[in-house]
Write a protein that binds this DNA or RNA. Sequence first.
DNA 1: GCCAACGTTGGC
DNA 2: GCCAACGTTGGC
Length: 136
Amino acid sequence: MNYWLIKSEPEEYSFADLKKDTTTPWTGVRNYAARNNLRAMKKGDLCMFYHSVSDKEIVGLCKVHKEAYIDPTSTDGDRWSAVDIKYLKPLKKPVHFHTLKAMESMQTLELVRLSRLSVMPVSEQHWDEIMALAGM
DNA sequence: GCCAACGTTGGC
DNA sequence: GCCAACGTTGGC
């Protein structure tokens, strides 16, 4: 079991949209590091859902529903990948970017370190710590 | 294969 | 809206 964090601008596709859809194809990633992370995802892996730009907080949990396949929104062969994710539940208390950025232990979190990466792994220690902050 | 120019992302 | 960080592109 691995842990991940995926980003979306809520104006683009929000956690509420995922709740409505239950599952959704996570398409449109056009960055190799993020793509490689998508390809490393295993069915059942847990993901944090982060609202970038306007909210800047982790709002909920989802899981990998279907492992990487060719991104249907790309016409570039199998250069880009997508996965399907499935809605799980909201965090009791969303965790804001500021909170994480201020924590010594989160300085190694990709979200803090590499702000532009849109799909990233989360270590088990970070995961547990964030879940505690989220009241989960 | 280097690197300048350019585009994009996302925090501020 | 600005701009830093970073990825990509293309001329040399």
